[in-house]
């Protein structure tokens, strides 16, 4: 079966202050249907650039991005990007429900639209806030509205750019678990950019680490932790800790020699 997302020999050059900067070079990545892949990398390593290229928001310099065997040249059908800055992504003059309806309102008739909006809001646990303006909600709730807006499109692929990066630890944990449930329910393929190692290991089927400058994929690590995962028990497992250790090292962190107990 061909992968849902196939990114072949991708190079992206962006204009910089002193001439063009090659951000990504020779990135190869295949994401299977319903797979949850996290992209990690140090700050400025090109994680967001990669995600924007996958989402058709950025022209590639060379190489190709395919989504379900169709070449990506603009935002593809069935692929929705969720941004970190929810406050600028939502339309402040629309109620929560009308924000969620934004992508589907001109394609569906009224009753079907209302049904989808309701379904999406229920999935993120916000059906009782449908009539509220988004800026009256907390940051975590606003991000859930943005996720609901994406889910209302019934996407095959969700591209998430540090979606929980601006949220506090408690909110983050609950949204992580909610996202797991949503994926289990919908079977959506998810590419998840984050700088949080624990989050990446906890959520993913596979973690890839961008390294080098220009960046390419330095490490691709399968995460075979059993699902459903749990914030306490999963994070206490020996294999979780081992994976976490491996990812930290791939990001350039070293264990001080004095503290090494083995290998």
């Amino acid at each position: 079966m061909s992968p849902t997302i196939l990114c072949d020999d991708l190079t992206v050059t962006l204009p910089g202050e002193s001439g063009p900067v090659e951000v990504l070079a020779g990135v190869r990545l295949a994401v299977a249907k319903a797979e949850f892949v996290s992209v990690l990398g140090t700050s400025g390593s090109g994680k967001t650039t990669l995600l924007r290229a996958l989402g058709g928001l950025l022209p590639v310099t060379s190489g190709t991005v395919h989504c379900d065997s169709t070449l990506v040249t603009g935002p593809p059908e069935g692929v929705v990007t969720v941004f970190q800055d929810y406050a600028h992504s939502l339309l402040p003059w629309r109620s929560v429900a009308r924000n969620v309806a934004l992508g589907i309102e001109s394609r569906l008739d009224r009753s079907e639209r209302d049904e989808r909006v309701d379904e999406a809001l229920t999935m993120v646990g916000l059906s009782d806030r449908a009539g509220e303006y988004p800026w009256r909600l907390s940051g975590g709730m606003q991000q859930r509205v943005q996720i609901a807006r994406a889910l209302a499109m019934r996407p095959r692929v969700l591209l998430m750019d540090e979606p929980f990066g601006a949220l506090d630890a408690m909110t983050k944990a609950s949204l992580q678990d909610q996202l797991q449930q949503v994926q289990e329910l919908t079977g959506t393929t998810i590419v998840f950019v984050t700088h949080d190692v624990e989050e990446a290991v906890y959520l993913s089927d596979r973690v890839v680490v961008l390294s080098g400058s220009p960046a390419s994929i330095g490490l691709s690590l399968d995460v075979a932790l059993p699902r459903p995962r749990h914030q306490i028990t999963t994070k206490e497992r020996a294999d979780y800790l081992e994976l976490r250790h491996e990812v930290y090292e791939a990001l350039g962190h070293r264990v001080p020699i004095a503290e090494r107990s083995h290998g």
Partner: peptide, 22 residues
């Protein structure tokens, strides 16, 4: 706001819809 317009693109709104709705 660039991000707002981008949100419209991601939801595959037409250019006319981005102008009218965003």
């Amino acid at each position: 706001e660039a991000r707002m317009v981008e949100s419209g693109a991601v939801l595959r709104l037409s250019r006319a819809a981005v102008l009218w709705k965003i």
